[in-house]
Amino acid sequence: MEIFIIFISASIVNNFVLTYFLGICPFLGVSNKIDSSFSLGLATTFVMVITAVASWLINHYILILFNVPFLEYVSFIIVIASMVQLVEMFVKKTSPVLYRALGIFLPLITTNCAILGLALFAVLRDYSFIQTIVFGIGAGVGFTLAIVVMAGIREELEMADIPYPLKGAGITLIVAGFLALAFMGFAGLISA
């Protein structure tokens, strides 16, 4: 039950993108087409789960064991960078089309705040190993949900007559604002 709550909390109620503002760059940058945003969501989810596992192991078996908490950020970011490299090589080999579609945004997952944010939140909240994995899956699903919804709206917006100063970034941010307000409707679902 507790695990279920963590999942719902991470994916919907405290959505990483719309409540914590994590992963805004790809959320604004890759949300043009539903297909590519869905693939990016999957790639991010995959990296998130692997990172969650790796960061839990590092935190418990290296940082706490040797009492070197000040190495937390450095070691986490190195793990994330190498994981992203791994996923990039994997995607390049298995699906060159997807690799080209994702373009610069695949290596940029490294600097996706959502990934490092996930590792930091998991440490901060003192999750157990299982809880950390569920938290990672939930956060990934939430990210995918937000970016796909956004892409759906933006595909419709393409035809709309938007005042020119707001075209591009402006209208995207305003739409994201309304999405965030809509997601607040879930706020009472889970207490704490």
């Binding site: 719309l18 100063p165 707001l166 402006g170 209208i171 941010l173 305003i174 965030a180 307000l181 607040m184």
Partner: peptide, 18 residues
């Protein structure tokens, strides 16, 4: 709230573009 942050920045960017 989070929504206000997005909307304010969106309008500011639009204002500057104008």
């Amino acid at each position: 709230l989070p929504g206000g942050a997005f909307i304010t920045l969106g309008l500011l960017i639009g204002f500057i573009n104008y």
